[in-house]
């Protein structure tokens, strides 16, 4: 194994560590970090980066959820309803992603992050609803 390859392996584990930390702390999958890191730092195809990211998220989210559950913070019914909608959506999204070209998918991903960016930078009052009682 060349030093270059070892460097890649170490980078992957470190990217995973950072993504896992974000997943546990912020309740996100970490893909928003892993996908750009794999594409930009390691030269992965966009499709492979996304598929790999989804694979990695499964054990991390599972063990993180168990920790939240033990701390009494997890409402399983809410999560089940959220997931029921999510699974249907994921099939639609994944089938569409596989039907498009790698370059186009990369640009769509960048556009998606840009939308989140703009939404975050806008004043919160535009989106925040009054919480009831």
């Amino acid at each position: 194994m060349s030093p270059d390859q070892i460097g890649d392996l170490v980078q992957l584990a470190l990217i995973g560590l950072a993504a896992g930390f974000l997943a546990g702390l912020l309740g996100i999958g970490g893909g928003v970090l892993m996908v750009p890191a794999m594409v930009l730092l390691l030269g992965f195809d966009q499709h492979v980066a996304q598929g790999t990211s989804l694979m990695v998220v499964i054990p991390a989210a599972l063990t993180g959820s168990y920790t939240h559950h033990r701390n009494g913070r997890l409402f399983l019914r809410d999560a089940a309803i959220l997931a029921a909608g999510g699974v249907v959506g994921a099939v639609i999204g994944a089938v569409f992603a596989l039907s498009i070209d790698d370059d186009i998918l990369r640009r769509l991903f960048a556009g998606f992050l840009l939308v989140i960016a703009v939404r975050m930078l806008l004043p919160k009052g535009l989106f925040r609803r009054e919480s009831k009682g």
Partner: peptide
């Protein structure tokens, strides 16, 4: 909740992110 999940699911499948964002 179901609708939020569906929207997040589409983004998750499409972009390989968890959808938590």
């Amino acid at each position: 909740l179901g609708a939020v999940g569906a929207a997040a699911g589409v983004l998750s499948g499409l972009f390989g992110v968890g959808g938590g964002i």
